[in-house]
Design a protein around this nucleic acid. Structure first.
Lengths: 330, 330
DNA sequence: TCACTCTCGGGGAGCGATTTCTCGGGAACC
DNA sequence: GGTTCCCGAGAAATCGCTCCCCGAGAGTGA
């Protein structure tokens, strides 16, 4: 079951290794008849070039790493958006003729492993999904001199990124609620050590402040349970509120449940808006109004940015706009 | 930004390349003092072995491919279970010190690319997720002589697999409904060209037949919309039914919606049971009773089977049991 | 003390491709 | 007809590592 090598193909075709290599790599400086005889031999033997040998000399691997840096609880990788992102990235790389190595970095130990792997010249570039503001990985990887693109803003200045307009999305949600005539609009935040959670909170705050209204804030951690709990808190602190903006859909779903149990009608008594527009948002009763994050588009943009970076192209950050999907809950 | 090579390290440590190599690979036949001086040099230079060069000579890559073979609509990869599987596999490979290359095969073209890649000796083994009964990929890959494990039963005999007990799970659901005193139990199937859909239907049929009851079947395709539509059909054909077993949760959720619109109370008038126990199953109102597929366990088992196969171990298929999670809908 | 075994380090031959360099031969031009 | 040029093909060097083989030196027993 041993695979044929370039040398065997050359012998069979009666030409030199060099010529076979030229044909394989589509060089134009090769006579048609030689090309044909080589192709013939390639097909007959079922020859496929050995990747390792090729990598060794070309110093390219046509492989990109997607690194998801995440605490073990899995804020990101448990997220329903994870598969959407992975899928979009995978498709995009496929059309670019590249391969995808997926690495989850959930502990310091695995972070070290990631660094080692990257240093081992196994990949041409890295697409980094690291939401934690204090994550050391972005800086560590970019120090390796390999192209790195982050899936969101990082604390490390020199890592190009593709980010959502989190503040803008929150503003969208809040303005929508204001237009619906809501006066007391509360928010449930994500864990504030995550960039996106902070930005969404900022967007909420600024929009309310611009219209002279007060912020009503409860802390959550992006899980459903925390959303339910935060909603209880809010109802207790401020029974008159008539709208809630949750920083993600899971927490919004938790809040819906609490409101239901508390006998508040949605949207008549309290309007609810979430963020992300995950699939489950359309399954709830009432279905959930949400800020749609264009995850697939963001993933595509990130891949393009990375590929351009590898080719020595520009590295300008990209900000993705988002839109509001209005459903029954508001 | 050029990385140091083994030769540079050897020069620095004042020993031969061979010795450095031995130290790097943890061989025991090396004197402690040489070991120390080498380690010192390695750290000072920040040396990391070049992966391609190593692969070339060892003929191992410590990399496994996860291939998801799926039509473009993405029955699998759109599935909420996708990320659970990917995550579990990734974690398991991490602890085994292996890397994961993810490939989606959504068209004949990309299937060819997958075959080419596998043939290029880039990976040590393949974990295949291909639900379609007629998928040519399992046979094609196993023909390459590389270890392949399938994530479910395939039409190709010689591919070891780890499968769910789909029929058993369906039986579990039906028996549960019978115990609840339901008499007219219908089912909504998945697309019958998928193994798992057929097996779940079989489990439903046999269990009912054993108790002398009649099957009431409507066809779906694993999507929410098809579940809603099938439920409408069922209500029309058999207004007296008092229970429905849907072959997956998405369809069950669709069915819930139809029942709600038709004014049937769940579970008082009609009980509903789904399959998979996806996260959304606990968000619906009423929350959904479902057969829990131990996806993470299955993924772990599949990785173990593959690793054992690579080491020349046994290749016996593994069947995962599943359990019923009873919630409000039944 | 000598012969023999045993350990451990070094030299060097590959692994399978790409790529540079060289060279033969035919076309083109004077 | 002779010289120059260019084009295409082959020979050989190279990428960075592993691992086989050999030899030097230490250790042991008689």
């Amino acid at each position: 079951m041993k695979r044929p090598t370039l040398e065997v193909v050359a012998a069979r075709a009666g030409v030199s290794k060099s010529s076979v290599s030229r044909v394989i790599n589509g060089e134009t400086t090769v006579a048609p008849q030689i090309r044909d005889v080589v192709m013939q031999a390639v097909h007959e033997l079922g020859y496929v070039p050995n990747g390792a040998a090729r990598n060794l000399v070309t110093r390219r691997t046509d492989t990109l790493a997607v690194v998801v840096s995440d605490p073990p609880q899995g804020v990101v990788s448990d997220d329903p958006l994870f598969s959407a992102v992975v899928r979009a990235v995978s498709r995009e790389l496929e059309t670019a003729g590249k391969r995808l190595v997926l690495m989850l970095a959930e502990s310091d130990q695995s972070r070290t492993r990631v660094e080692q792997y990257i240093a081992g010249a196994h990949v041409d570039g890295v697409l980094l999904v690291a939401l934690h503001g204090t994550d050391p990985l972005p800086a560590a990887l970019s120090r390796q001199g390999l192209p790195v693109v982050s899936f969101n803003r990082t604390s490390s200045q020199d890592v190009p990124y593709v980010a959502l307009d989190n503040a803008g999305g929150a503003a969208l949600a809040v303005r929508h609620l204001l237009e619906r005539g809501r006066r007391r609009i509360a928010t449930i935040t994500g864990p504030l050590e995550l960039h996106e959670a902070r930005e969404r909170l900022d967007g909420y705050r600024h929009t309310l402040r611009d219209t002279g209204r007060r912020s009503i804030v409860a802390l959550g951690d992006f899980t459903r349970g925390s959303g339910a709990e935060a909603m209880r808190q809010l109802l207790e602190d401020d029974p008159d509120l008539d709208a809630v903006f949750a920083a993600n859909d899971l927490m919004a779903i938790g809040a819906l449940r609490t409101l239901h149990q508390a006998g508040r009608r949605v949207p008549e008594d309290v309007a609810v808006v979430g963020f992300d527009d995950i699939e489950a948002a359309s399954y709830t009763t009432p279905s959930l109004t949400s800020v749609r994050s264009p995850m697939a588009d963001q993933a595509t943009a990130a891949v393009h940015l990375l590929l351009s970076l590898i080719d020595g192209g520009p590295t300008d950050p990209v900000i993705m706009p988002n839109e509001l999907v209005v459903r029954e809950s508001s």
